[in-house]
Simulated assay, not measured.
Amino acid sequence: MKALTWQGTAKVAVESVPDPKIQEPTDAIVRLTSTAICGSDLHLYDVLGPYLEPGDVLGHEPMGVVEEVGAGVTNIAPGDRVVVPFNIACGTCWMCERGNFAQCETTQVREYGKGAALFGYTKLYGHVPGGQAEYLRVPQAQFGPIKVPEGTPDERFLFLSDVLPTSWQAVRYADVSPGSTVVVIGLGPIGQMTARVARYLGAERVLAVESVPERIEMAKRHGIEVIDNSTVDDVPGAIMDLTSGRGADGVIDAVGMEAEQSPMQEFAQRATGLLPDAVARKAMETVGVDRMAALKTAFACVRRAGTVSIIGVYGGQADPFPMLDLFDKGITIRMGQAHVHRWVDEIMPALIGDGDPLGVEDLTTHQLPLDDAPRAYDMFKNKEDGCIKVVLKP
């Protein structure tokens, strides 16, 4: 089959690789019909190379049609249309029983001290071949795949794999309630959907911080007020002015380690990626730093006794937190990988009812064949051609 493989820093290629096969009774094989590129994939493209090997298959936002199931899989059958969550969970361990599917103890990657295994996401998260391919082996298929109805475009349900539950969790973690004011930092795919979910769940006012014109335009189509940080020097001050000097009830960092305006940290990240793997891994695990600009903005924008929800991915172990300010303001901070299955039942009514209240069909800006994936990565990374979200068609 064809698959998109990592070949080195900022280098990916579509190659022929062996077709996946059933290995365990709880496996399934899915023929993929759509698979998206995630902002987290850019971390693999640039930063996390020390935990990858040439030929690793990337991708963790897939959906398709079940081709084959193992003897232990009874919830899905060949011919079913399914979305595959990015995290691999068993559904029955101590963590899964409590809804903490991203911390599944059955697939937990204990060797690196990490949580549940993820598709297409380095040795740190299980070294499981990913979903930017024609076919995907799905471990723990007795629980993971989400059956979806026939007869609607893939884009109506594809984002259940990651974008929608990640955004939903970000909003829930921000304690959004009717009448509240929410700020979303960054309007990439996750930020776009997070802002829409906040409105859907009752926020009275949703503000966002972004500088890319195409992203600003998309957000405004969905009723989001945007502060352009390329023209506003003091974003926290602007937020204070818009909230009677108090700050936002909840602030969501949807940027993470991709933050701009942190040039020294960006240089350190890229330099680490050029070191020999063993040295780079040690550096990242012990002295690694992230680009903290977005997070610092979030802390400055939130009101006293408010909540900051961190959904953008961070990887540094030496990031300085402004603990004096956070403690004084009484800030609640929540963060982590999305527990996909925890949120599916809440999200589904917005997808199967009339209309498209979350605008899921107005997120994809580019649909390209799998063969064009290397060009798509470069375009997405560099924000070219108005690119916000790419869906690949195997």
Rank of each mutant, 00 (worst) to 15 (best):
K2Y: 08
A10V: 03
A13W: 00
V17C: 05
D19T: 14
P20M: 05
D27F: 03
I29S: 02
T33R: 12
C38H: 03
G39I: 09
G39N: 10
D41I: 13
L44K: 05
G49S: 05
Y51G: 09
P54M: 01
P54C: 03
H60F: 15
P62H: 09
P62C: 09
V66Q: 10
E67R: 14
V69T: 10
G70N: 08
V73P: 05
I76L: 08
V83P: 01
F86A: 02
F86C: 06
I88F: 01
I88E: 01
A89L: 01
A89I: 00
C90R: 02
C90M: 06
G91V: 05
W94H: 08
C96G: 01
G99V: 03
G99T: 03
A102P: 02
C104I: 02
C104M: 04
Q108G: 10
R110H: 11
G115L: 02
A116M: 06
A117G: 14
F119W: 07
L124E: 09
V128P: 07
V128G: 09
P129D: 11
G130Y: 07
G130A: 10
Q132M: 10
E134C: 05
R137G: 09
V138W: 06
I146A: 06
V148F: 07
V148W: 03
E150L: 02
E150G: 05
E150F: 05
L158H: 02
L158C: 06
L158G: 04
L160E: 07
W168K: 01
A170V: 00
V171F: 01
R172N: 06
D175I: 01
D175Y: 02
V183N: 04
I185A: 11
G186E: 08
G191F: 04
M193Y: 00
A198M: 04
G202F: 10
G202N: 09
A203H: 06
A203K: 07
L207M: 14
L207F: 14
V209R: 12
V212Y: 14
P213N: 14
E214N: 13
R215W: 13
R215T: 11
E217F: 14
V226M: 10
I227T: 12
D228V: 08
T231K: 13
V232Y: 11
D234T: 13
I239A: 12
L242A: 15
G245S: 10
D249Q: 09
G250F: 03
G250H: 02
V251K: 00
I252Q: 01
A254M: 06
Q261T: 13
Q261V: 15
M264H: 15
E266H: 14
Q269W: 12
T272R: 03
G273V: 08
D277L: 05
A278S: 09
G288D: 00
D290A: 14
D290Y: 14
M292D: 12
A293P: 05
A293M: 12
A294I: 06
L295Y: 09
A298K: 00
R304Y: 04
R304E: 04
A305H: 15
V308P: 00
V308A: 00
V313T: 15
Y314M: 11
Y314E: 04
Y314K: 02
P320V: 15
M323E: 13
M323H: 15
L324W: 08
L324F: 09
F327C: 08
D328F: 07
G336I: 04
Q337L: 14
Q337V: 11
H339W: 09
H341P: 07
R342T: 10
R342A: 09
D345S: 08
E346V: 05
D354T: 10
E361R: 12
T365K: 02
Y377N: 07
C387D: 03
V390N: 00
